[in-house]
Simulated assay, not measured.
Amino acid sequence: MLTAATDETTATGWAAVAEWWESWGQPVGVLLAIVGAFVAFWIVRAAIGRVVHGVVSGVKRRADAADTEALSNSPLAQVRVVQRTRAIGSVLNTLAAWVIGALALILILSILGVNAASLVAMAGFLGAAAGVGAQGVIKDFLNGLFMVFEDQLGIGDVVDLGEASGVVESVGIRVTQVRDVHGTLWYVRNGEIVRVGNESQGWARVIIDQAVPYDVDIDRVQERLLEIATRMSEDPAWLHRIIDKPEVWGVESVSSEAIVIRLVVRTKASAKYEAGRELRRRVKLGLDDLGLHLPSMQSIVVKGMEQSK
């Protein structure tokens, strides 16, 4: 009798649970799927962030640098590791969000009673829609992946993307964010980027095309320019930012008003603009010592300014 009563109680309990699940099972299941998706994304994001932080911290320790900006005094490869790791971390976070969101949607549809055949049909429909109407998104996605994994750019790089140029602040699956010198933040679709000019990789070259009077002693001016640049390269403040001996490439152009002489200095990529401004200041002061009255550039047409040696 006791066993029969116990079985009856158990059956009643299971019936109550079944009745409750029939009434509230779907809403609860959907809620759990949504919460689970957020928890999964948080875990994946935390794991990616921990890996990125570990790589960056390891590079800083090896470079004995207190912050990422100080890595400019370290070998370039270490700077690239930091920038590329952060860019890849940004891309992986975005990719994880899309994947977890898609899985959560499929799970929710299953809870709501949509059968597997319908899910397959929906996937086929979405695939067809993607092939017709989402070609741009797919192109953005693939181009973004290739740019990051080929190390075309990284967070912190100074780049020229054609319509926008500046410092890369974020690299996503679909959009790359670039802040220009005026502070404007540009959102550039990855699929629309057909060329990348990266000024933060390898080395850079400061080029100064200095106009001097037509009747000047060319050899004397060239010697003076080379002396100015050489002194700057030997200055302790610039010793580690100028990576090669300065060169005077000679006369770049001649007109009735002036002669243009080209001076070039190779620097670290991160020091190009700062070194260029300092070198121009020193050139001006050095030519003042020679008593030269420099001609107005408004009356001079300089040819070949963007040509290489």
Rank of each mutant, 00 (worst) to 15 (best):
S165W: 03
G202C: 14
V171C: 07
I208M: 12
R179P: 10
E169A: 04
H182I: 04
A211Q: 02
A204G: 10
W203K: 08
A204Q: 06
I173C: 13
I173S: 09
D217T: 09
A204W: 11
V175H: 05
E192M: 05
R174P: 12
S170P: 13
W203E: 11
S165M: 03
D180K: 15
R174M: 08
V188D: 07
V196D: 05
G197N: 07
V168M: 00
D209G: 02
E169T: 12
V181Q: 15
P213L: 01
V212A: 01
L225T: 04
T176V: 07
I173G: 06
E169N: 11
G191Q: 03
I173T: 10
D217P: 09
W186G: 01
I218Y: 06
R179W: 08
V181L: 07
R220P: 07
G166P: 05
A204M: 10
L226V: 08
V216W: 14
V221H: 11
I173V: 13
E227Q: 08
T184C: 09
D217G: 09
R174F: 08
A204L: 09
V175R: 00
W186H: 07
V196Q: 02
A211W: 00
G183P: 01
S200Y: 05
V178M: 08
Y214D: 12
G183K: 04
V168Q: 00
Q201R: 08
